[in-house]
Amino acid sequence: MSVPAADLLTTAPAQDVLGGVGAGPRVRSRLRNLEIIVPGALLVVLLFFCFIWPLLYHIPSPTVADLFEVNRPLWSPGHILGTDAVGYDVMSRILYGGRVSFEVAAAVQAIGLVVGGLFGMIAAYRGGWTEAVLMRILDVFIAFPSLVLVLAIADSLGPSETHVIWALSAFSIPAFARVARAATLRLRDQPFIVAARLSGTRTWRILLQHLAPNLAPQLLTFSLLGASLTIILEGALDFLGYGVPPPTATWGNMIATGQSFISVYPQYVLVPSVFLVATSICLNMMGDGLRARWGVR
């Protein structure tokens, strides 16, 4: 929200009445920028290699094994990250696995954002029994231990990427709904929303044109944090055998198959784990950075 600079000055917090100024604001804002730029750049590079690089250059297929090239160590010629016990190129499996992770994360967040966001907005804006009914439905979802619920859904739908997306959406929709509802409750009684209503604007227009744009920063930062979690959960589902079925390359599958060799070839587990965790951390840092930058609570 925009407050004129002069107002911000006159309303400095109480600590300033007597206390010190604390760390320089300039240093802090530098740090904050780095917090967004570094993970953002890393993610862009990874996205480029996962989605665009394979189109430009030939890389070995992730699902065609080269039986003469098994168990190659890292940095082997032609196989930068080596090959695994079956002869798959690890690098290529990492890149294709990354695709799956990003696709699932994006789809789950998009579904959560649209469905959950609308749910939460409508519930909070309408209030009364609409809110009671909608939130009760979501409470049912939230009441289940989330992973158990996801496992149950994945199990009954059978393993496939689409099913993983549905299963994980059961988790993201209520989360987004909660965030959207809380934010809408804060905005709902703001004079500008009341003013829009009084000037005769219809409810759906208020929802889409006044509320949604003002919720956007908050929901977007939340979706980055959510994506960071989704990637881990997707890995976990694959690992447990409820996710994308092998031989499709995913980070979770790579960790699952690699674990039988962990004492001899620890890199089969370590390499995908590093990618999994690093991506998740980058998304999380970016979400946090943007949240601080945009002043979202």
Binding site: T10, T11, A12, P13, A14, Q15, V17
Partner: peptide, 11 residues
């Protein structure tokens, strides 16, 4: 100093 907005000057 006493600031303008009492809401925001108190924790």
């Amino acid at each position: 100093m006493v600031f303008q907005n009492p809401e925001r000057s108190l924790n």
